[in-house]
């Protein structure tokens, strides 16, 4: 089940402008980069990005940048504080008529999960609480990518990282619900594999003032350990296995923008990635795999109940 589309019916309707030039130093096949590229197309030209230290910081390294928009780089803990400063500065310039309304910029925080779920959460919580008018894109590659793939609070249960080589026992923090509990006007999960869904969500949020928060699953060939040729395939499996639900919350009201008719087994998603390889060999960790599958099933059962939708056939 897909929700009805309001703005873009087919790929052909999506904006064709590019705001990122090629030539960036990010890994071949980087899902975070695809996501930013797609989101920027909808946001348009007048954007200033506030980046938290992470992989994306490599985008703009003196003297080169792929961006046609503006950029400010902050520490892992403070992109949302930086966004507040920029918004205030822009508002002052506008109020004093030192900048025309046409030149006004939309402020976009760009942060990894290490920053978003952890170090930067306090400043983001405060910014949402103040009702700051800004966009937030968390490209969630489920670990500290830039420094060699260490565990973050977004690393999924069982996944191996540089600091959890046997697979972590901790569960992924539910940042969507943490954000939503702040009652911002808009929260959504997105995936570069569904560019129309992503564009629709950005477009829907455009008329809203206040925090507009986006959580993207950013497939990461380098950290997750798969051939970059599979980047889009892995993103697709994350959705079809139900591991990565696509949803939004407008004024706190949650609805799923895609409910699969039947879930594919999570194993299909996990087995393609080195970070889960220890679950399959040398011995099969059957119980762990069953547990991961159960968590996904429980999630979708509750979605069906809450939204009165047809429950997907479980795997």
């Amino acid at each position: 089940m897909k929700v009805k589309r309001e703005f873009y019916r087919s790929f052909k309707d999506l904006p064709s402008e590019e705001y990122l030039s090629p030539g960036s130093p990010l890994c071949a096949g980087c899902g975070g980069l695809t996501t930013l590229r797609q989101m920027h197309k909808v946001l348009g030209d007048n954007v200033v990005i506030v980046d938290a230290a992470g992989c994306m910081t490599l985008l703009a390294i003196y003297p080169f940048t792929p961006l046609r928009s503006s950029w400010l780089y902050t520490t892992m803990g403070s992109p949302s504080a930086g966004a507040q400063g920029l918004r205030d500065a822009l508002d002052v310039l506008l109020a004093k008529h030192r900048m025309s309304a046409d030149d006004n910029l939309q402020v976009l925080v760009l942060a990894g999960d290490g920053s978003t779920y952890g170090m930067g959460l306090s400043a983001t919580s405060a910014a949402i609480h103040r009702g700051l008018d800004f966009w937030y894109l968390c490209y969630d590659n489920e670990a500290y990518g830039n420094t060699g793939f260490q565990l973050s609070e977004a690393s999924p249960f069982g996944s191996a990282t540089a600091t959890s080589p046997q697979g972590t026992q901790q569960t992924k923090k539910n940042i969507f619900e943490i954000w939503r509990a702040h009652q911002p006007p808009y929260v959504a999960t997105v995936s570069a594999h569904e560019p129309i869904d992503l564009a629709e969500k950005v477009r829907r949020a455009m008329t809203m003032t206040g925090p507009k928060l986006f959580l993207a699953l950013a497939v990461c060939p380098t950290g997750w350990g798969f051939d970059p040729a599979l980047s889009d395939e892995i993103a697709r499996l994350a959705i079809e296995t139900g591991v990565w639900p696509l949803k939004e919350a407008i004024a706190g009201q949650v609805r799923h923008t895609y409910i699969p008719r039947r879930l594919r087994p999570v194993r299909e998603y996990l087995k393609l990635q080195r970070r889960f390889r220890h679950l399959f060999q040398p011995t099969l960790w059957g119980e762990t795999l069953t547990y991961i599958q159960e968590q996904v099933n429980i999630y979708w059962q509750s979605v069906a109940k809450a939204e009165g939708a047809k429950q997907p056939t479980l795997a």
């Binding site: 990122l20 030039s21 090629p22 030539g23 960036s24 130093p25 071949a28 985008l59 703009a60 003196y62 003297p63 080169f64 940048t65 792929p66 961006l67 046609r68 928009s69 950029w71």
Partner: peptide
């Protein structure tokens, strides 16, 4: 902390060699 005043100039980096 140098500022990059150019836009989209990463195009000069020929990542095709990768």
């Amino acid at each position: 902390s140098p500022s990059i005043l150019n836009t989209g100039n990463a195009e000069q980096r020929q990542t095709g060699a990768w």
